[in-house]
């Protein structure tokens, strides 16, 4: 591990000054991903700016019925929050489906959004494997190698890694906005716009300005989210990354879909909002045939690799199962 300086500012402005002046500075929150990547040499910061003392850990209802989540709120506090469990249950389920109890207690919301892919070629301690995220231009070893859990949507010949977050999938389904600050002022991005398209530059992962610090996430009011669910398929019952996952919310009246939100996880370099499927369903019947057709419409753009084609039927089955459950519960 490279030697580094450590600072623990008490004010956001002090943190921004530190992050803005040293290009080797990185914010430290829970450290569950960053410290691990520092051990393997993937991350080599010159300065860690510990966010622990910043007043960014609150979770509070907004006057319009939404929710504001501070960037350093922990995953476990988010999942336990009464408003999250009542109004955005898929978000609580997504958070609880991620990692382990210990990791959720350490990890934070801002850090969750900025965590790096778990692609084995990216995280490997050796620097001998090709990885365009680690060494731009070196190639992508996953395309001809181990890629069972890699992307089926939105990938390019430069990178096929997936974003590992469960939380971000639910946040994307509910149109979350990310707020940030730089030394020049505040800004915001829709979460769907936080992650840059892979293109030819997979090492450039977010649209945040240089030196920016995520300060929080804002969820707009979403009555449909009260009837929502997150389901994750993985290779063991707990404490594993997804093969595929789905955040879904459904408002059905008299058998007709009034509103629907769908986002897939573990399929792309970012949470995949299934807007094509949402459009196909809205105003139509809430039955298994329609759910399957909508999933097919979304997945028509998929380009599976030789060893991850199983994700497509898995995602289709997931969508039909979860939407059918939500429709049946709405009919009760």
């Amino acid at each position: 591990m490279r030697e580094f300086h450590y600072r623990r500012p008490a004010r956001v402005s002090d943190a921004l000054a530190l992050l803005g002046t040293d290009p080797g500075a990185r914010p430290l929150a829970g450290g569950t991903n960053l410290v691990d990547l520092m051990k393997t040499g993937v991350e080599r910061p010159a300065l860690l700016v510990d966010l622990r003392d910043l007043p960014l850990d609150r979770i509070e209802a907004t006057p319009d019925g939404g929710l504001r989540i501070g960037a350093t709120a922990t995953n476990s506090d988010l999942a336990a929050h009464p408003d999250v469990r009542r109004r955005y249950p898929a978000l609580a389920q997504a958070v609880l489906a991620g990692a382990s109890g210990q990791v959720r207690i350490m990890a934070t919301v801002g850090g969750n959004l900025l965590q790096r892919t778990r692609c084995g070629y990216f995280t490997a301690p050796a620097t001998t494997t090709a990885c365009n995220k680690r060494a731009p231009g070196s190639g992508c070893a996953a395309i001809a190698g181990e890629h069972r859990n890699h992307a089926v949507l939105g990938a390019t010949e430069h990178c096929v890694a997936v974003h590992p977050s469960d939380m971000a999938v639910a946040l994307t389904a509910f149109d979350a906005t990310v707020t940030y600050e730089t030394a020049d002022g505040t800004g915001e991005l829709p979460l769907a716009g936080l992650y840059r398209p892979v293109g030819g530059t997979p090492h450039l992962e977010t649209a945040l300005p240089t030196g920016a610090l995520i300060t929080g996430v804002v969820l707009p009011p979403a009555p449909v989210a009260a009837a929502s669910r997150y389901r994750k398929v993985r290779e063991r019952a707990s404490y594993a990354f997804a093969i595929g996952s789905l955040a879904a919310a459904l408002d059905v009246r008299d058998g007709t879909v009034r509103d629907v939100r769908l986002a897939f996880g573990a399929v792309a370099s970012h949470p995949w909002r299934a807007r094509r499927a949402e459009r196909a369903l809205t105003g139509g019947p809430a039955d298994a045939t329609a759910f399957a057709a909508a999933a097919d419409a979304e997945l028509a753009a998929a380009r599976p690799l030789p060893h991850n084609g199983h994700k497509l039927p898995l995602l289709r089955t997931l969508a039909v199962a979860v939407l059918t459950e939500l429709a049946q519960e709405a009919a009760r």
Binding site: Y6, G30, V35, D36, K39, L48, S100, Q102, V103, M106
Partner: peptide
């Protein structure tokens, strides 16, 4: 030593933490 096994679990301010990922 990578946060995957839990053998290093301690309590920080009463809550569980992985001492291997905690500086």
């Amino acid at each position: 030593d990578h946060g995957q096994c839990g053998a290093c679990t301690v309590l920080l301010d009463g809550r569980r933490a992985l001492a291997c990922l905690q500086l």
